[in-house]
Write a protein that binds this DNA or RNA. Structure first.
Lengths: 209, 209
DNA sequence: CCTACCGATCGGTAGG
DNA sequence: CCTACCGATCGGTAGG
């Protein structure tokens, strides 16, 4: 039985990705050394340059892939939703699931943004902005269809994203809750937030006196 | 006019703290070099060792001070509150204010925990746990006095802290909102969360099927 | 994918 | 607070 995929080099590349995320999580970009990374996958430091052209490029490829993954999952989740409320619930489910199940990658991909050079930084934050923009669009969609009234969708989406993303900082896979429970908790919280007049009023810049 | 405080050395120490937080925020612990830090305050690298015994110690002193500051402000904020609801509102106000006005320090003091050696890590996380424990105690206090019913104060406090802390990741001082507005928004959200039956029910592990 | 090596730079120290 | 310096180690390259 011959395999056309899964050659040694491909396995090494996958192993480098896994080891790299781990090193970035534990030591940060400057703190991880290429010699350690090479050791993790059983090759010599010089051989790493068969897999990427330099350390910066390695970081970029990892962060880029995380963004592409979450964007891809979100596209599937939102596909066919023709109703702002269901779209919102789908967004919350997708975001919370991803951020609880891939905590290390998600944390690294925000923490190590600062280590990207200007061009790569721009590329990754552009991806991130398009991802976050989807939530703002859903909030605006719900406004237009009069499902809810969000006075400042820009800031509200940031606030909602912030509370969802923070799940990755405290959720523990071995704890009392499963990811599906977290999804329900956040869906309920966020629906309450949007459909509750008092909370909505407080999200208005008009109240700034 | 003679000054007994504010000698050159003291000013340098303060300047080192400010520059250090900035460097840690932009480059991380491994990424910042002591030569850069020395340059920021106008001295030579070797002279830094008049102010701390090594780089690790410098990091520890910065993170420790941030924790002591927020703990100190929280003690003042909660002093004399004899009612769970008012204590909760005071906690929210203090936490949100601190995390919006000192964003860099707060972000660094969580991001760079990993760069502390085991003893220093233990010391700082012990401070952090005592700080976060105050919120859990308030939730339990409200349970006892029947102000609200929080089934899992441990997890609820983590969730609430997470949504409050995330304000530091998106709040911009030049934006539409002032910190006092953010405080009101979060106070309203969190009160809704605690006093709303549906949300409270969803925070119960009993619903895990 | 390895060996052998480079220039640069790091944290830290000695001795003023 | 400075000068002068150290051993170690880093990212990266040449040439197989």
């Amino acid at each position: 039985m011959t395999r056309t995929t899964g050659s040694k080099g491909e396995n090494t590349l996958k192993a480098l990705r896994v080891a790299g995320i781990n090193r970035l999580y534990k030591q940060g970009f400057s703190g991880m050394t290429l010699r350690e990374l090479a050791g993790d996958v059983g090759i010599q430091a010089g051989s790493l340059y068969n897999y990427f052209s330099n350390k910066q490029d390695f970081l970029y490829e990892i962060l880029r892939q995380v963004m592409l993954d979450v964007i891809g999952e979100m596209e599937v989740a939102l596909d066919g939703e023709d109703n702002p409320r269901l779209a919102l619930l789908a967004y919350v489910e997708c975001h919370v699931s991803f951020h609880s199940s891939r905590q290390q990658e998600v944390l690294v991909s925000t923490t190590e943004l600062r280590s990207l050079n200007p061009e790569n930084y721009k590329r990754v934050t552009t991806l991130r902005d398009s991802y976050e923009g989807r939530l703002r669009e859903i909030l605006e969609w719900g406004n237009a269809e009069e499902y809810w009234t969000v006075i400042d969708p820009q800031v509200s989406s940031k606030l909602i994203l912030g509370m969802m993303t923070s799940v990755g900082t405290w959720y523990s896979a071995g704890g009392r809750y499963q990811i599906s429970d977290l999804v329900k908790i956040y869906q309920t919280m966020i629906e309450n937030l949007l459909f509750n007049d008092m909370a909505a009023a407080n999200l208005s810049p008009a109240m700034v006196s």
